[in-house]
Design a protein around this nucleic acid. Sequence first.
RNA 1: GGACGCUUAGCUCAGUUGGUUUAGAGCGUCUGGUUUACACCCAGAAGGCCGCUGGUUCGAAUCCAGCAGCGUCCACCA
Length: 1016
Amino acid sequence: MTDKQELNKAYNPKDYEEEIYQKWEESGNFNPDNLDLPEDAPSYTIVLPPPNITDRLHLGHSSMLAIEDLMIRFHRMNGYRTLWIPGTDHAAIATQNVVEKKLLEEEGLTRHDLGREKFLERVWAFLNETQATILEQTRRTGASLDWSRNAFTLDAQREKAVQKMFADMYEAGVIYRGERIVNWCPRCHSTLADDEIEYKPQEAKFYTFKYDKDFPIAISTTRPETKLGDTAVAVNPEDKRYQKYIGKTYQASFCGIKLDIKIIADKSIDMEFGTGALGVTPAHSMADWQMAQANELPIVKVIDEDGLIHPSFGEFGGMKAEDAREKAAQCLRDNKLMENEEEIENNLSICYRCDTSIEPLPSKQWFVSVDKKLDFLGGKSLKEKSLEATQNKEIEFIPERFYKKYAHWMENLHDWCISRQIWFGHRIPVWYRERSQKSKVKSQNLELNFREKKIFDLIKDGKKKVETRALNPEEKNRYFGNIKTGDNIILNYKVDDYVVESLRVKVKDVQFFQNREDLLKKYSIKKILPGMEEDEIQRLHQQIPGYEEKIRRNGLVALTIDEIEENNDNIDIVVSTQPPEGEGWVRDPDTLDTWFSSGMWTFSTLGWPEAYQNNKKSGDLAQYHPTQMLETGYEILTLWVSRMIMMSLFALQEIPFEKVYLHGMVLDKEGKKMSKSKGNGIDPVEMIDKYGADAMRLSLLIGNSPGKDIKMSEEKIEGFRNFVNKFWNISRFIMQKDLSSEELDADECTLADKWILNRMSTVAEKVKQDMREYRFSQAGELLRDFTWSEFADWYLEVGKVEKNEAKNKIFYQLLTDLLKMWHPFIPFVTEAVWQNMKTDEKDLMIQDWPEAEKYNKFRDKGGDFEIIKNIVSSIRQGRSQYSIAPGQKIKVIIYSKQYQELIGKNAEIIKNLQTNAEELKVESSGEKIKKAFYQNLGYAEVYIPLETVIDLEAEKSRLEKELERTKGLVKGLEKKLNNENFLKNAPEEVVEKEKNKHQQQKERLNETKKQIQNLE
RNA sequence: GGACGCUUAGCUCAGUUGGUUUAGAGCGUCUGGUUUACACCCAGAAGGCCGCUGGUUCGAAUCCAGCAGCGUCCACCA
């Protein structure tokens, strides 16, 4: 049934791979819609983590592709409706950077020289060139992706989805606009994500000084110029030196600038560092901003977006930060306020693009609230729901330890800043318009003084209320002077350091009070917010730290809120998937964080939003979502995985995937990260050219386990190339035979036949189990060892000596099943063989996975072949040990009581399996032979004492050891089974299991005793 | 500083919930082989106090504690 055409002695992947992949694509088998599957076939879907459009294939991709293709092909062969969705990511920042850099290098232009539109044209032209590369390279690895569903995070369909998502989230109050400290590059005029910051160790001057001579505490800093914006000094609450100052406020004059400095306590202050006191600059430090929030400190911006000092700071105004630093230092020296100057080593944060030092600045950004409670999520927030989904194991992590990492990260998650000041990406679907004619709106962000959710909720419910804020009279004018009755303002309720919710409200009245009593006479909270309980009011009135004092000092502004604005007629912000009607609308220039669009990847690729109407899924979305598996690198667990979970929960109220398999990084031989600059990278495309895709895949699958990094080297790939070639030759050898697909009967099998079938039964079962439990490396290793060391080295060799009809059936059976089991690992070579077998059956990749059960009837029937193997090995060992020349024929004498018949039956095998034995004699008794081998006049007689086959002494001591072990085990089990606590508390099935085990072990005990007796 | 992971043969790693493994594999090393499926091969061999110290147990590479070394991530760096 096979065509015995000549195949090359060595497998040359280049001759086959391209053609095979093309054939696969043409077959349509990658698309589950084309497969003849039962209606109720379960889905198995993976979305490919989309590589960046500018990427070229690296080993990380190859590893990911190998693992996913393995999962996909395995499931496809197991009858699942298997879908693997390909795509690419626009990687906004990374791509823009590449193009900007190119533009600068080749034309000396910046993006601003070109303008937004022209620049974007360049980006698209660039990505049209690069995008195809990674996809083409992906094909070369053999990945069985459904190309008909190929997607791009920035194509028209995804654009629609992203805009809809933004609008929906805004509508639900999950997306809001707020202020926070961002890392700002004054040269690029853009915020930078944390991972875009580089650190440069540098020598810096560390100044220790007092603001002025009356100020009681000295502080230290490397940036005195920012001290113009200090509003507090923080000390450790435990610090005896400063305890007496905590809570007090001082008016200081720092280099001619008036500062109000409050002394606050904060546990994070290191008493040992510097003077143990920290000048708090809320506007220019992340940590200080947080302290300011916790202590309700005013925020004073010193440095602007160009890195220059704000004009309101007298003679410092307009100076570069660096110049201002020296000027401030000099001023301190001149006034004898400088207590110390020393050189220290510190880390300067710089822009990774232009090395400019970064300024932390407060800035308006768009956020996704992770704490906003949502009705459609059962009153829970995205954060809570996302945690819940993993805690109840709705989403499972492989390996398990990532639950902890995920949970820890989630629990500490702050609102997610999604706006980016770059041009390439999904532009934020928000339009602004100055409210000139219709209404005079002053949009202002005002903080609620009460950090109480309750008040905010009452306001939201439409209760009229008072908003109070402690301010000194000048500030009152600065903030409120221009707000009048009828104006609209935005109220923010803040928790932690971020804005969580905002409301647009209309001001009914603005009043200024000098003290709280006056305020309360007019507006007691109770009067205005009837929903409040008495004790809550008491708490609000009295227990807010620093509140009393602040009022006493500064007075209050009271705002009466008239109404909450509800309709859109009167607003100046439109969030919409469509540009708004009318004149004068200006679109938000910012774009969205790349993770916003890739966070939607599981459903934006499956037809959302069209396929989700009235809370009902249809089409692909209904069929394939939630997906079954997300396979990705552990380094993006937090960046990507967590976002996908939140986005899917929001959009569909369901998880995006059931399981998350996290692979590690691919490192070089020494365990270092591969990088272009180090030159230690291995180019997978080059490796595929040289050794074939199969060899590369195997090298990335075997020895690789989830969550662990894998070390790679070319030698490793070479090693697996050797195996692929071995496999090829095994197949080639078998295909030369008269194969038969007829049913095999146990009766026609020899000992060796039964042995290999028995082994196959175990292996097939184990492989399937390993595959199901994500032990891919083990599955591969077992398959390799079986294929090479047992099937080829023994059974194929036996087949050269022992010939029977059963072998033609067994060879056929084992080869086809091995081809199937190997296919997910090494799809190309298995396909090449399959095609050469020219069976009429359907394509290999949609064959059914081999059922181990069909080998079960041969179970436990070939165990004695191990004795034959041992005898053969013993003879080979003897020859080698006594240096018997290879061509030298020998006579073998075996002493054995038990196995005379067995040996006699298999004598031909023993003689011909590289033992070069001419004569084989079995003796049932004989003297113990000390010297097992000796040579005699050119004709060796090899005596194999029984001990060599089964070493009596060793066997006895082994059995005795086993006896001891079993005795112990039985004793231990008895103890357990007599333990009342165990019987009471353990689940019944466990008790049952232990009882069975006890019974078994007792039997084994007797068995072993008998065996020992037999030996004697 | 916080969290997590790793430590088994010269190298890379298995070892599935403590006992059927006298601790395994691949590579490398050494010895011998042109046995027509395969030299990208075949046969044979050497090589391990399973990081250290204690504990739990009848029994520990496996569980616990401490220590040491390596690594990763997160925070901080005034």
